[in-house]
Amino acid sequence: MSIIQVENLSKSFKSYKKAPGLIGSFKSFFKRKYYEKKAVNNISFNIEEGELIGFIGPNGAGKTTTLKCLSGLIYPTSGKVSVLGYNPFERKSDFLKQISLVMGQKNQLWWDLPPMETFLLNKEIYGVNNKDFEDNLEELAELMEVKDVLNVQVRKLSLGQRMKCELISQMIHKPKVLFLDEPTIGLDVVMQQRLRKFIRTYNQRYHATIILTSHYMEDVEALCKRVIIIDYGKKIYDGELTTIAQKFSQHKIITIVFNKQIVRKDIENLGVVKFFDFPKAAILVKREEANKILSQILNEFPVADINIQEQDIQKIIREIFTSGII
């Protein structure tokens, strides 16, 4: 049985609209107009133990709502959810002791005290025994490289150290399933890389199942083999990251290194010239014609090196969202 099973999950919310200006406020004082918003629209997927999955989607796509349904925070409008064999919404203690939901930007650490105090509190809350607590803390602190700041007041820590300690405090019970909502938001590049390394190690070492939502494609590209793309509450792709290009992109890029002088105009009829700075050039061509155009270039031009590549994943995904392909 898959560790996470989602069947026809849907979730709708009620919201209201207000007209701008003073008159609008006055009107809404007396009457409000409600409308229904479908945040998650009939999503289904299965996740096996030990997978590291990325949820991608623009703002408001329904990623966070789906995550909240999986962790039992939101009651679905319809559909079935099963995590670790439990119905998350029942919020059974045994279930909650095995998961962790980390939403970036939330502060759980007590500000005027060292992070250790919060760790000890969570130890009691999650019922971690002394030996496990020490072992877990030792491993996590080493992985995160924060061993020497555990007893320094949180207010005195840098943002990076604080985020790491927040993460430790929410993982002190070594969860089997980890939900990470925008974990690298607001962090600098170095921190992002360290955090990714930590997530990868945690997944590999403890065979933990991790679902990650992120705006940063670098997170997903670095960590996830499998991604689920969600837009307007619907699942529009569920599979390997590498095959996204094949499925969605209608173009490929041919990169060429010329060994004799040519003019940009010469290659303009082959496709859209994306880049030309002699001796290098890159052309965007239709997927079906790529091979044909490649041999054409080899025949007609003085080529030192030539290569066919998929379009940049980030560009493809951006295109999927902006053009609204469903």
């Binding site: 909240k68 039992g72 203690s93 909650l96 962790s100 939403m103 939330k106 502060n107 809350i125």
Partner: peptide, 16 residues
């Protein structure tokens, strides 16, 4: 919006 972090703990949230 921090109520979520209390609801996800394995302890009665009213207590906490």
């Amino acid at each position: 919006g921090q109520l979520d972090s209390y609801l996800v703990k394995p302890v009665d949230e009213q207590f906490l």
